[in-house]
């Protein structure tokens, strides 16, 4: 078995990579130019009667003279069920939902398990032991961790198998499935299989995992892992954490942009809006499109070509 510091180093690197990739990609997307409006109704933050049928402020006479009320509560009412229960998939692709929902919900529960393990580690550090023979909060966290982990792992494993089956055998998906897609699902499957083994054979009460997390947050990197299986699980989970944001699986945060910055972005360019300033700058970008009707020469800006007479 590899020396203990490597396991900690892998996990630190994984968390750091995850954070860096997510932040970098977030910033890259967020700093892209303000695009033209491309909303799609219904928009989540609409309020009042219009929410029932997907209406907009364009239905109001002289809409620009009225205040546009955006309901954050309605936005959450649309977004939370979508994130937790994959409502769009349920409504439009039920066959896939039966596979995708357990996968995603299982993952949420596994993330919850990590949270519970972390909380348990903090309790340990605070002198409150966690385990089935403990009392009060310690025993509650123990059973919660095991329960959430088992249900989450079961759902995620079944979901992954279901998704893999569809990717391999459903004619609709097969031809659009790449080696990368299969690799991703197999990667999850291997991680889950090792997690099951570790749970069944080495760490049924999560004490080793909790100890690892406790050492991780206290930088006690020389502490042993205590089990080869748990060690392998830690390495695989670390690799998975680092890998996810580099793939299209990054939709866990990309969805914020696709919904809030595109689909629901109905912000009008009114007189006092900061939009005009940003657009004014972008209209000064030089244009190099080659078609003859554009008449771009690399020096002319968008403002120039948009106001140029056609020949």
């Amino acid at each position: 078995m590899a020396a203990a510091p490597w396991f900690y180093l892998v996990m630190y690197t994984a968390v750091l990579t995850f954070t860096l990739v997510v932040v970098t990609r977030f910033l890259k997307i967020n700093t892209m130019p303000l695009h033209l409006r491309w909303e799609l109704y219904p928009v989540g933050h609409e309020s009042g009667e219009k929410t029932k049928y997907g209406g907009s402020y364009f239905e109001d006479l002289d809409w620009w003279t009225k205040s546009i009320h955006k309901s954050r509560a309605n936005e959450l009412k649309a977004m939370i069920p979508e994130m937790v229960f994959l409502v769009a998939l349920f409504e439009h692709n039920r066959k896939l939902w039966f596979r995708s929902f357990p996968f995603h919900f299982g993952l949420y529960m596994l993330i919850g398990t990590i949270g519970l393990v972390l909380f348990g580690a903090i309790l340990d550090l605070a002198g409150i032991p966690v385990g089935k023979s403990s009392s009060g909060l310690g025993v509650l966290i123990h059973y919660l961790t095991v329960g959430v982990a088992v249900v989450g792992l079961s759902l995620a494993s079944l979901g992954t198998l279901g998704l893999l089956h569809r990717r391999l055998f459903d004619p609709e998906l097969k031809d659009y499935t790449t080696k990368g897609d299969i690799f991703n699902l197999l990667f999850f499957l291997v991680v889950f299989a090792v997690a099951w083994l570790a749970f069944a054979l080495a760490d049924g009460d999560f004490s080793l995992t909790r100890a690892f997390v406790r050492n991780l947050i206290t930088f006690n990197v020389s502490a042993p892992i205590g089990s080869t299986l748990v060690g392998i699980q830690i390495l695989l989970v670390g690799l998975l954490i680092a890998y996810i944001p580099m793939t299209h699986m990054s939709h866990f945060f990309i969805k914020w942009f696709t919904y809030h910055k595109v689909r629901w972005d109905d912000e009008p360019n009114l007189a006092d809006s900061p939009i005009a300033g940003r657009i004014g700058e972008q209209l000064q970008y030089p244009v190099t499109w080659s078609a003859s009707h554009i008449k771009a020469d690399g020096r002319k800006t968008w403002a120039d070509i948009a106001t140029e007479e056609i020949e």
Partner: peptide, 16 residues
Amino acid sequence: LQPLVLSMENCAKCQT
């Protein structure tokens, strides 16, 4: 650009 990149790089090809 932004909506285009988002759609290009994040489709799960689920056929929904």
